[in-house]
Amino acid sequence: MTGFAAALRERRPLIGTWLVTDNPIGAESLAGLGFDFLLVDGQHGLVDERSWLTMLTHIAARGAGAGLVRVPGNDAATIGRALDLGAEAVVVPMVDSAAEAERAVRACRYVPVGERSYGPMRPVPRAAGTPAEANARVGCVVMVETAEALADIEAICAVEGLDGVLVGPFDLSLALGGAGFGDPAIADRLDDALATVAAAAAAAGIAGGVHCPDADTAAKRLAAGFTFATVSCDLMLLEEAGAAALRGARA
């Protein structure tokens, strides 16, 4: 089996970025740079469900990195919709327990192993074939963002059919008592929490991922045991490149 889901399950190192702006041409450009995946943010980004198809189509047009969608919540209808539109995997936010992770997995898989309703609208290439083949090609990742999820992390990672966990360090920092991401008062606690998640994922044989604000942090986290990372987002990358160009011109 080839494709993003297979790479995730084999715990290959994967690097992606978030797409938070409704900019299909920008998504297409980023898709040509060599990212392993691009994650369309349907929760906090400016991309609504009507634009998921356009974004995913432009990503697929480059034939390189995979197109993923972070859905707004752990809702079977929305998860199925993202997959029908061509997402190679979904990322489900704010999953607090193994039971909630099981619900997400079932929403990603067709009967009899899940409860996804059959009706893919993009038959080539990701949804082609039998429902069983489609099940094998679809990835399911849940986010670890709360104290409850951290406390249940071993059980979450052991959920059958779950392909990976992704730490949201901003919300997790708040859950650990920090004033926000980067708060030095909880830096050690956050590092310990990240180590716990990476170890639990490794023990369960699934992918362990983390969002990182920059490349240096991503390299550090991957070296520390995570198998995939998201680095920054399209809007921040645009602002950073623009600011650098402006500084250089003025100098």
Rank of each mutant, 00 (worst) to 15 (best):
V142A: 08
L235S: 11
L56F: 11
A244R: 15
P112S: 05
G139M: 07
C212E: 02
R189V: 03
V144K: 02
T2A: 12
L238P: 00
E115V: 15
L19G: 05
A193I: 01
L68W: 08
L30M: 11
M1Q: 04
V159A: 10
N74D: 13
D84P: 12
G80A: 12
R247E: 14
V159P: 03
A155M: 13
A149Y: 07
R50Q: 13
P169G: 11
A202D: 00
A249I: 14
V92Y: 08
A244N: 07
G65W: 02
I15E: 04
V210K: 00
L39T: 15
A82W: 08
L235H: 09
A6E: 03
T57N: 14
Y110G: 03
G3M: 06
A200C: 11
A134E: 07
A60S: 15
D75L: 12
A61D: 10
V95D: 04
A7M: 09
D152K: 09
L39I: 15
E10Q: 12
L56E: 08
A107P: 07
A187T: 03
W52Y: 13
P72M: 13
V159W: 02
A98E: 09
R9F: 00
A201T: 01
V71S: 07
Y110I: 12
G129H: 07
F181V: 05
C157F: 02
D234N: 11
L68G: 08
I79Y: 02
V69G: 04
P131I: 10
R221H: 08
D41S: 08
V167D: 04
F35L: 06
T146K: 07
A204T: 05
E133P: 05
G32C: 09
G119L: 12
C157N: 03
H211V: 14
W52K: 14
A6C: 03
